[in-house]
Computed example of a mutant assay.
Amino acid sequence: MIQEVDTVVDFNTVDAFPLFPNCKDIPSREKQQICFQLEISQHIYASLKQFKFNAKEVINDTVLVKLKVDALGKTSLSTIQISNKTKELLPEFDSILKVSLQNLPLLQPAIKRDMPVTTEFTLPIVLMN
Rank of each mutant, 00 (worst) to 15 (best):
Q50Y: 06
L72C: 07
F93Q: 06
Q42V: 04
P27W: 01
Q32L: 02
N22E: 15
E39C: 07
D61W: 04
L48P: 02
T75L: 07
A71Y: 14
V117N: 05
L19Y: 01
D70H: 12
Q32F: 00
Q32G: 01
F53V: 04
P27F: 03
L67P: 00
F17G: 08
E39S: 10
Y45I: 15
L89R: 12
K112S: 11
F36R: 00
F11L: 14
L97M: 06
Q32R: 14
D61Y: 03
L72I: 13
E120Q: 13
K74R: 14
V99F: 15
D94L: 09
F20Y: 14
Q37N: 13
P91Y: 05
L101M: 09
T122D: 09
V69W: 02
N84R: 10
L19K: 04
L19G: 04
F17P: 06
L97F: 04
M115Q: 15
S76N: 10
E30P: 01
V58H: 13
N60Q: 10
N12G: 14
L64I: 08
P116R: 07
K24Y: 09
I40F: 00
P21I: 11
V65E: 00
T79S: 14
L67M: 10
S100L: 03
S100K: 05
K66W: 04
P109K: 01
C35Q: 03
F17M: 12
F51Q: 06
I34K: 12
F51P: 00
T75N: 05
C35M: 04
T86W: 09
D25M: 12
F121R: 02
D70I: 05
A55T: 12
E57T: 11
N54E: 15
N54Q: 15
V63P: 00
I40L: 02
I34A: 10
K68S: 08
T119K: 03
F121V: 02
I59T: 03
L48H: 02
S100D: 13
I82A: 02
V63M: 01
L104S: 05
F11P: 01
K85P: 03
S95F: 08
V99D: 15
S95R: 13
G73T: 12
S100I: 04
P21M: 07
K66D: 11
V99R: 09
M115A: 15
P109I: 03
P105M: 14
T79R: 10
Q33W: 04
T75R: 08
A55Y: 04
E39W: 02
L97E: 03
F51S: 06
V58Y: 06
S83Q: 10
D114V: 05
V58M: 10
F11N: 06
S47D: 05
V14C: 04
V14L: 05
I34S: 07
K52Y: 11
P91G: 11
P116H: 15
R113W: 05
I44K: 00
E30M: 10
T122S: 13
L77E: 03
D15A: 03
E92K: 15
T13G: 06
P27R: 14
Q37A: 11
I34Y: 11
